[in-house]
Structures are given as C-alpha cells and as structure tokens.
Amino acid sequence: MHYALLVLAPPQATAVHRAAIGLCEAALDAGHALPRVFFSDAGTQVALASAVPPGDEPSPREGWQALARQHGVELVACIGSAVRHGVLDSDEAARFERPAATLAEGFVLGGLGLLVEATAAADRTLTFGGGAP
C-alpha cells in the first residue's frame, strides 16, 4: 500500500503527532510506501527550529526528524502556511527581510502541488488534526 499524510495539528497537540509518527513507523516497518508527509496550517509550526518545548515533554519535531533520518521520508511544510507561522528557510528569510532562517533540519518548504502530487500517487491519504464534523 502507498500512503500519503496531511498533518494540520500544531505541535502542542502532542498526542496527534505521536499518533501520526507511530502510524508512519508501523506502515514503513510493514513494508508499505510512505514517501512524503505534508504539513499545512498550524501543522507547519512543527518545522519551527526556534521553538523550545519543555524538556520533560516529547518533541514532535524531533520525532518527525528521526522518522526522516531513519526512513528517508520527505517532510514538506506548506510554504504559504509556514511563512505565516514564522517558519522560514534562508530564501524566505531574505525575501521578507527577517533576521534569520527558522526552518528545522529535515524539513523543506513547498507548495500545495506537492500535497496534490503525494495523494495522486497514494492508495490512501490520512489527515491528522483536521476538524471533526
């Protein structure tokens, strides 16, 4: 099976991120393909390098970075949402004349086309953190 993930929850929703990362690990360990996770809206805050979660709480950012390192999963933060949340790579920091790049290692910024591309290639798409009806 080929999966795509869309993550919308802010990093403070640690249980949502824990569930999403756990699902990715289980799917990859079972031999499924999961090449890309797309973060949008408040979900892009997980790619903020300058956020400092309390030391005794799990860091969703570090969880995603470990997943990317171990399995080569591409972590894409929606560029439109990311800049709104202060997540800037060096190009965007220069473009908007901000003092520093804040994009965490292991993440890239990209457009919504990368979400469309990921789901078009996938058999299943899972949303984490969207609104319940």
């Binding site: 919308l8 949008s40 809206d41 408040a42 949402s81 709104r84 969207g130 009806p133």
Partner: peptide, 24 residues
C-alpha cells in the same frame, strides 16, 4: 479527492487552508 470543510470560517486559519487546498 473529497475535501471536507468542518470549521467555522474565522475561528482560526484552518477553513482558509482547506479552501486553498481544494482550489489547488
């Protein structure tokens, strides 16, 4: 692809993010 919009329009930015995704 079916995009389901569950959020009130101006509580946060999720409604706008959903509509932007639909248009994409």
């Amino acid at each position: 692809t079916l995009l389901v919009m569950n959020r009130a329009p101006y509580a946060g930015t999720l409604a706008r993010a959903g509509l932007d995704a639909a248009l994409a």
